[in-house]
């Protein structure tokens, strides 16, 4: 049995850098105040931390930095609610609370010598970026790497320069699609899920790692399956409301699973059994 205390107490962390990515998304570089904690902090891409903005509350945020980065942790936050908007008002030097990492991440070490398709929508690229950085750091371990990303408009493209850099260095094949194009946009237009049929992809020996809004996840899984992917080849990160991160508060319950402890990354075969859209 699990005879240990569930980590509910946040640890103090300092914001050391704030970067505006898009009009509504900022990336915060944070570091635990306790140096020992910062040194010990290890995580798998896809895992999340509970971030406290004192006085406003706590929210689950995926880690967007590389697991090999030991000096700081990057949190990419979309300002959509009360807490995330409060976080956007914080500046360099301000203190937040952190606890975690929680959940199960992308098990990259299991995908040795396989091709990887990273697939993300909107702010879902945050957790995918961590996995991309980890995969690129050990590039020899894997086959071909693809990145498909979709967002609402070119203004809201997250990590645009970074994606271009990865592509220029031939590290991966990237393809970005916007729903509504603006002047000067040269890339694809339309939903990111439309790229699945348009782009030639190897099906054999390939895994798909996915993170994005629930609608995208649902459609994308179906389209990958139509291409011939087996559900075991697909891994998707699900998004749910969470208040504890340790399987107690009940908000993230889907059937027999709690997204916070059994997920957020689930395999396609697990997701097939879940009742995702209950209406």
């Amino acid at each position: 049995m699990h005879e240990y205390e569930a980590p509910l107490k946040p640890e103090l962390a300092e914001i050391i850098k704030v970067k505006s990515e898009t009009p509504s998304i900022k990336t915060f570089d944070v570091r635990f105040v306790d140096k020992k904690l910062q040194k010990q902090f290890a995580f798998l891409p896809g895992k999340f931390v509970m971030v406290s903005v004192f006085g406003y509350g706590e929210m689950p945020i995926s880690i967007s930095s590389s697991p090999f980065e030991k000096e700081f942790i990057q949190l990419t936050v979309n300002a959509v609610g009360n807490i995330s908007n409060a976080m956007h008002r914080l500046k360099k030097g301000d203190l937040i609370g952190l606890r975690g990492p929680f959940g199960r991440g992308y098990l990259l070490q299991r995908f040795r010598r396989k091709n990887i398709v990273f697939f993300s929508g909107g702010c879902g690229l945050a957790s995918i970026r961590s996995a991309v950085l980890a995969a690129l750091a050990k590039k020899d371990m894997f086959g071909d790497i693809f990145l498909f990303h979709g967002c609402k408009s070119s203004k809201e493209l997250l990590f645009g320069k970074e994606i271009a850099n990865w592509e220029r260095r031939n590290s991966l094949n990237a393809c970005v699609s916007v729903d509504i194009p603006e002047k000067g946009w040269k890339g694809h237009t339309g939903f990111v899920t439309d790229l699945i049929e348009k782009k030639p992809l190897p099906v054999e020996n390939t895994v798909v790692l996915m993170c994005g809004p629930p609608v995208m996840v649902k459609i994308a899984i179906q389209k990958f399956k139509d291409l011939g992917f087996k559900p075991e080849q697909i891994y998707a990160s699900l998004e749910r409301l969470m208040h504890c991160g340790v399987g107690k508060c009940g908000h993230c319950n889907i059937g027999r699973e709690y997204v916070c402890v059994h997920g957020p990354v689930f395999s396609g075969s697990q997701i097939e059994k879940m009742h995702l859209e209950e209406g």
């Binding site: 406290s52 903005v53 004192f54 509350g57 706590e58 504890c244 508060c249 908000h251």
Partner: peptide, 21 residues
Amino acid sequence: CHCFTVEDNFLLDDSGTERYR
């Protein structure tokens, strides 16, 4: 039935904030 919500409050005397479930 055990589900709970966690929320933060500012204290009126500005001495800090509290977290309750």
